[in-house]
Design a protein around this nucleic acid. Sequence first.
DNA 1: TAATATATTGACCAATTCGGTCAATCATGT
DNA 2: ACATGATTGACCGAATTGGTCAATATATTA
Lengths: 233, 233
Amino acid sequence: MFCEVIDIYDRFENLNEVKKQAIMNAGFKIFGEYGYSKASIDDIVREAGISKGSLFYYFGSKKNFFLYLYEYAAALMKQTVNGPGEDLRTNIMKKTDFFDRLDEIKKRKMKLSSLYPHMSGFIKKAPFETSGDVYKDIQMINQRLASEQTDNFFENLDLYKFKEGIDPYMVFQLLSWCAEGIVNHYQREAPADGDDVQKEIDYDPVLSLYDRYSAMLRKCFYKEEYLDKNIDE
Amino acid sequence: MFCEVIDIYDRFENLNEVKKQAIMNAGFKIFGEYGYSKASIDDIVREAGISKGSLFYYFGSKKNFFLYLYEYAAALMKQTVNGPGEDLRTNIMKKTDFFDRLDEIKKRKMKLSSLYPHMSGFIKKAPFETSGDVYKDIQMINQRLASEQTDNFFENLDLYKFKEGIDPYMVFQLLSWCAEGIVNHYQREAPADGDDVQKEIDYDPVLSLYDRYSAMLRKCFYKEEYLDKNIDE
DNA sequence: TAATATATTGACCAATTCGGTCAATCATGT
DNA sequence: ACATGATTGACCGAATTGGTCAATATATTA
């Protein structure tokens, strides 16, 4: 029961993946850059390379499209952190080393932002959208998302490895800002969308740069006796 | 000669400081949030608490106002980094300790962003403005600013204090992201503009939080022998 | 106080842009 | 040839745009 209620957006979801991603990325980009009220459908369809009629054919209204993107991004974000990793066995909460666990999360998020380059910008703004058109809906979604929130990062972590006087939460913050800064940096590098080929940022340099920062902090913040980990540089 | 050419904006500059700041902050906020083309004059004057006629009386056009803000912000930013400090004797380039010099710069910038909370967001976006209306002007200003650029941070710095294998440039980046993150965090805290009192963020907690991060990094990245500095926590 | 000059306002303007519609076309499989 | 659904972009009324200006409020000078 109540199963087919979800699929109001069949028309969109039956499209091929490249087209879907192009449309969603266009939405993430324009909504993320200008916010709901200032983002125009014309901008979005131009960016996505489709006609205005199509977008309304898929979603019916600007509001529906925005909310669809928000739900989608939130779900994908949650799954990225909580779900299994690439080899389907990596459960993040099984890792009890601070850096191992944090690196895994950051890397997953960074990979995600290579597939949807403007999604992180979108989900950072969307929850605070004030436009009367979507305000209440956003709040309801936020409430549901908050209630679904389960495990926190610091649960069951080997914090004794840190030197005296090092606050793990500060290290957590530092590496969060770091990951964000790196992604932003590489996204500015990527020039205008050439021709038709999706100019994807290859995230290898992104990940390895993050690794350098993470390794630097681990080396200096951990007690000597816990530095037996492989150092590949 | 050519002296009074500058003062086209007498009408604005003769206003009292509070009003000027309110108007500029409104511009920084709206332009910074939406970009030139999507920022509307109506939004700005509503935010500033003045009438639309006044703004055109001061600046003549949207374009003029935008460019005025950009020039002002760039000049203020430059002066903040290069100029003397609060006690008029602190020349940044005289400090040869990495953290001393960096902390001084970051603190100055953080204080500035308590006076103009949305200026940093504005100057981050403005140089890349693509709107045809202001594109060429922005580029010209950028060119001039680049040519005026003089001293770089790493000149004449005691980098030997760092432990082997620590890249000072990475530390520089890390603390830049850190300062930015802290300011962003405290700016979200500040709620809607209550009544008429300018809700200024008191930057003491901001600065002291930055200090904690800076101190943590210094303690772990410097060789033991250079840690004789006072540790106030 | 009266007179002059300047500051400030918001209703108003033409032009553009907005979200949304829809008849017409295209694509595909039968 | 036919039918079905996908796609388009010209088009709509409504809202918003940057900018104007006659009217009013305030400050300055006499």
